[in-house]
């Protein structure tokens, strides 16, 4: 269970987040809200990528506010970057091995990459450099977070930039991750189909929690603009299981 108490964050006298109090203990929690409302900042603070100006963060009752990123990771928090990071020299295999914390079995890697629509044979030894497209990097990022299987997984707009793949596949990955961890999955998204699987939705506006309640209550009470450009680029193909990728 994650608990945030009186979290605020400001930069140059500009308040990015103001007095955030919340508890996350559900299966799927979506964070939504207008651009600039503080969504990414909020999950970066949970991961330790940003230090809050005030407030405390508790994971299963332990105060983790002053812990560095890696100690939070080892306590069971994972984070999928909105814009995945390039590395010259490090390969997909290297990061999947780190994510899974033991010698990564090729078949397991194949399975997890297949779930994000990439064949392990083609990708496992690719460098995470600029020869991979934004969409490929994003899928690998999702695979890495899924491979970690942490009790708290944070995804920053996982669907953004992915084309020719499906929400259904993405949702399938979240469901499998939950089946493996029985933890909480927190997803920043504007997409109705993502919000529709959420048990609870946090609606952020101007750095404050405008609403945090069950999905239906939030969706009916707040006028959320879900018609984000880019939805039409996604196609419904279902999970790809490449038969040649064994």
């Amino acid at each position: 269970m994650l608990e945030l108490k009186n979290i605020s964050y400001s930069v140059d006298d500009k308040d990015i987040l103001q007095d955030i109090n919340l508890t996350i203990d559900d299966r799927f929690v979506a964070i939504t809200g207008p651009n600039g409302s503080g969504k990414s900042t909020l999950i970066k603070i949970i991961m330790g990528l940003i230090t809050p100006t005030t407030g405390r963060i508790y994971l299963d009752g332990q105060d983790i506010t002053d812990l560095p990123i890696n100690e939070r990771a080892n306590l069971g928090i994972s984070y999928a970057f909105q814009q995945p990071v390039h590395f010259k020299g490090l390969r997909v295999r290297d990061l999947l091995e780190l994510a899974s914390k033991d010698k990564y079995d090729f078949k397991a890697a194949c399975n997890i990459l297949s779930e994000v629509g990439l064949c392990a044979r083609d990708y496992i030894d690719r460098e995470l450099n600029s020869t991979l497209s934004g969409g490929e990097m994003k899928r690998i990022e999702i695979a890495m977070t899924a491979a970690r299987g942490s009790k708290l997984s944070l995804f920053d707009e996982p669907e953004a930039g992915i084309d020719l793949w499906s929400f259904q596949s993405l949702i399938h990955i979240f469901e499998k991750l939950y089946a493996k961890t029985s933890g909480s999955i927190v997803i920043i998204s504007h997409q109705e189909r993502i919000l529709n699987i959420a048990d609870k939705i946090i609606y952020l506006k101007d750095g404050r929690i405008e609403k945090y309640a069950g999905r239906d209550e939030v969706l009916t009470s707040i006028d959320i603009n879900l018609a984000e450009p880019g939805c039409s680029l996604l196609t419904e193909k279902g999970p790809r299981q490449d038969q040649n990728c064994r």
Binding site: I69, A73, V85, L98
Partner: peptide, 8 residues
């Protein structure tokens, strides 16, 4: 940061 989120 990325590698630290993986526990290093």
């Amino acid at each position: 940061n990325k590698l630290m989120t993986l526990g290093l």
